[in-house]
């Protein structure tokens, strides 16, 4: 496998990181990565791949929960030099659409002294939208970074994953941060400091 030619490790990484930083500091704000010509393997959307490229290198590691993930693992190894590890020690965990949170209880939530020593989830979704959608999850957020209240609609995220997140983040500052990516290069963050509720729309 060849490394991506259509990716600039200096300037693209910087630009994408800035969008991630903006999303993480403003939960509920949907940012869009500029269109890219990279071709990640099936099971990894472009926004998730670009998030991985922006954050991963040989000093860090990740875990993929998809079955038969060797294509994705090879792709990330060639492009970022990060290795796949067991879920219990992983810094970043890539989740496919509709993941129900099973098996994620082993993921690191940090320690009281070093709560930042925890995993970040990068979950795929079908669509993230700032306007109402039918048959989706309506997530209402408040907390640091949100001016009053913010609402987003997400398709392709399992409510059980959000339940899992609430459970893990109940002992704040221990917890797990979630980055949601979709097929249209959108990215949305749910840091552990956020207090959200969700409802299913018909």
């Amino acid at each position: 496998m060849q490394p991506e030619l259509h990716y600039n490790t200096v300037f693209d990484a910087q630009q994408h990181f800035r969008l991630l930083l903006d999303s993480m500091s403003r939960p509920g704000k949907i940012n869009t990565f500029p269109s890219s010509n990279i071709l990640p393997p099936a099971g990894l959307n472009q926004a998730a791949a670009l998030t991985g490229f922006a954050l991963l290198n040989a000093d860090t590691n990740y875990h993929i929960t998809v079955q038969n993930s060797t294509d994705i693992a090879d792709y990330l190894l060639v492009n970022t030099a990060a290795q796949q590890v067991d879920i219990a020690v992983a810094d970043y965990i890539f989740l496919p659409e509709n993941h129900d949170g099973r098996g994620l209880h082993e993921a690191r939530v940090g320690t009281p002294v070093y709560p930042e020593d925890s995993a970040t989830l990068i979950a795929a979704a079908q669509v993230i939208s700032a306007v109402a959608m039918t048959d989706s999850l309506k997530i209402t957020m408040n907390g640091p970074g949100v001016n009053g209240e913010a609402t987003v609609w997400v398709k392709g995220i399992n409510p059980d994953l959000l339940n899992y997140l609430k459970e893990q983040n109940s002992e704040y500052p221990l917890g797990i941060d979630l980055i949601i990516t979709d097929g249209q290069n959108n990215v949305l963050c749910l840091p552990r400091s956020n207090r959200f509720t969700y409802t299913q729309t018909n």
């Binding site: 991630l20 930083l21 500091s25 954050l55 930042e116 925890s118 840091p191 552990r192």
Partner: peptide
Amino acid sequence: RRKLLKAVAIP
């Protein structure tokens, strides 16, 4: 950058 994202998540 990785540390900054965590710092933002734990104000």
